[in-house]
Nucleic acid binder design. Structure first.
Lengths: 111, 111
DNA sequence: CTCCAAACATAGCCTATCTATGTATGTTGC
DNA sequence: GCAACATACATAGATAGGCTATGTTTGGAG
């Protein structure tokens, strides 16, 4: 999968990861890689701006990790109710989109 | 469907339209609109550059309409064998992509 | 004490689509 | 016959979201 294909899907990916529990940037990227068996890699240059965008739109809320976390500081995020309904909406749009595009993608190429 | 979502899919749409017979820009746009019941509208600013791009890559071949065509001149396009195998490849990629993304899009949002 | 992974951050780039505009041709109504 | 409109192609510039490249800080391994 050309990674550019993330365009437009990144928000859903991030929100759906946070649906399963609070997490922070670096870990989210690893979850995505794990859940797609390495097929999808979110780049840092996409990830952190996206998280800020989602936070600015109040789809997620960020907070700094507690002292007992080891390593560099981590900024955790939790999904908001607003974020959940946004996610639902995006999922529905995606389904509609797939049905629409299948008109073209399902056409059989002869030979 | 946000029209921006065409990004990456336009080539498949155009190639799959031409699979069913030679056509020209303006008519292709109408076929797309018809086949999606008006849900998808390809803008001229996307359409004509895309056709040139496909021609430059030898996925399609263009030729000017004959004298007996009425109205302004039309530039017809036919899909090449190279275009057909490209289309097949894009279709396969799309299917793989859908399977991949369904991991995130199928997650059920509670409440 | 050095080196590397974890973790966050951001400036600038890339590129496919869109907006807006322009041109030319044929048809329809009056 | 001519104004108004739909057809048809074309393109310059804007937009936007993901990527490249780079930088910083912190802690653990050897």
């Amino acid at each position: 999968m050309r990674n550019e294909r993330l365009r437009g899907y990144l928000d859903v990916i991030l929100l759906s990861i946070l649906l399963e529990g609070d997490s922070y940037g670096y870990d989210i990227a690893q979850q995505v890689s794990d859940q797609t068996h390495g097929a999808l890699a979110i780049k840092e240059g996409s990830l952190y701006p996206a998280l800020k965008r989602l936070e600015a739109n109040r789809f997620i809320e960020g907070y700094w990790g507690t002292d007992k976390d080891s390593g560099p500081r981590r900024r955790y995020y939790r999904i908001t109710d607003r974020g959940k309904s946004h996610l639902r909406k995006l999922q529905e749009e995606w389904n509609a989109e797939q049905r629409l595009l299948s008109v073209f993608f399902d056409k059989v190429v002869p030979e």
